[in-house]
Nucleic acid binder design. Sequence first.
RNA 1: UGGGGUGUGGCCAAGUGGUUAAGGCACCGGAUUUUGAUUCCGGCAUUCGAAGGUUCGAAUCCUUCCACCCCAGCCA
Length: 564
Amino acid sequence: MSKATPNHFIRSIVSNDLANGKHDYVYTRFPPEPNGYLHLGHAKSICLNFGLAADLEGRCNLRFDDTNPEKESAEYMDSIRHSVAWLGFDWDELCYASDYFDELYKFAIELIHKGLAYVDDLDAEQMREYRGTLTEPGKDSPNRNRPIEQNLDLFERMRAGEFEEGELVLRARIDMASPNITMRDPILYRIRYAHHYRAGDEWCIYPMYDFTHCISDALEGITHSLCTLEFQDNRALYDWILENITISKNHIGEKNKPMPRQIEFGRSNLEYTLASKRKLIQLVSDGHVNGWDDPRLTTLVGLKRRGYTPASIRNFCAEIGVTKKDSVIEISVLENAIRQDLEANAKRVFGVLDPLKVTITNYPENEFETFTVKNHPKDQTMGTREIPFGREIYIEREDFMRDPVEDFYRLAPGREVRIRYGYAITCHDVIEDANGNVSELLCTYDPQTAKGKTPDGRKIRGIIHWVSAAHAVDAEVRLYDRLFNHPNPGALDDFTSALNPDSLQVCKTAKLEPSLQEADPEDRFQLERVGYFCFDSVDHSTETMVLNRTVSLRDSWAKPGIKK
RNA sequence: UGGGGUGUGGCCAAGUGGUUAAGGCACCGGAUUUUGAUUCCGGCAUUCGAAGGUUCGAAUCCUUCCACCCCAGCCA
């Protein structure tokens, strides 16, 4: 399972930097903005940053990029912290960009002193006009050559709260004609009279991402600053800022070592899912799903509630790789990752989703026996358990066919199957209800066939799962399917039009073997022949059992085209 | 028609001038099986976006072309 550490272009760069002495160690960071819940896309970045540091005996920080008070909250921050820890990573330092507000402010003043930043009073619309377009250069702002003293004064007064929101901004003085629009005198600070979830009301000016991120990296001694592809153009600004401020080498931990280097990698998208925070928020607030931890969502909290293990997600991330191209991953890759984990580690139990009663007419009434069965077919260390058996049992309705199709080798009138770990039974009569639906089967059992034996050597192909009717416990089982019917719902004008109406199927009729009542609520298990399940972390209790299906078992019989 | 990127099988992805182009997922066969699961074995790109060129030899070098993605928030 644990694969050789994946070698990708970023790892090569870092290894080289270490080998040739450019850096003495690797120091990375995972820098989320606390404005939403983490999803699978973040998991890729987390595994990359923390994984690289761990493999190369370096360090990795968790840093909240919290420079936009209007969108951020402590709730999001807490959830992100928990998700990173749940995924299995420890950060070396827990950092907040907001802790650097004082330093950031000083660096801004330094830029002003050097004539490399100025206060501008263009409003947002003018700013856009002056910026030019993709094909035309921008124009200098009338304020571009404002005297340094005046800039200093204005900037201090911005901080002091003497201006309205939007009235003034601080801009870097770079090049309005740059073909790279990011370099056309980007805004460094804006005025916002907003309460910051950590800094409170201490500031009314907030630094922008480009100004904050590179300085935060440098202050923390980050050596390699990994981010996604859309920041490639911003790299020029990242480097420009660090080149133009005086940031002590002592600050960055390694004396006389180079500044952090930004390296971009491609995002990975999962088919049939959404990753955009804005759209995720809409799904939650419009009630299309039941919260951020809805098991149909690929948020980390959703996957956790669905029954995914941290290891399966880490393996998934290792499997999809790291390259410079955006990718679209098929869900089968994710499903494969969790199946691999659960196949090896989940104990097996019996449960019937859609019960059909079977009476074994030649088995005495009010008499029971117990079978000792394996908790795992291959892993003996997982031990055994006892399951009760009696005259009346439930089998899966799906495992009986009145008029069996070709290739169906389960139960049918006159046919014999084995009830797993028990006897061979043969169906003799079918009882119907008033509507003509099958309501019960009358079968006989062959006492010679206990424990998998067939004394006459006859071959019994069909093996089905079952539970004792007298001992079964009721449960609600939630079956999940993809949330969207479209492979790329985010590309649609209205992604809600692609919502899958059958993404959640609640099955209230399930009958489970009694041992499940004593199971640990954290347990993940396989309902044999059905799928992998876990108890729902919110709605499950020993009184009312609620199970989530994490993923079905592979079913090479239920191929499209073959009708059950 | 500015700048920055990317193009290897259905989806990912190794490969950085020299055997028949790794591997995973998916798919298709077949074996084993008290889960139609698992496991196992076999199949699955004469071809690397296209066209030219360099070379004894190219997915890897050069040229041109094509396609797709990102950038004109006082978001990150």
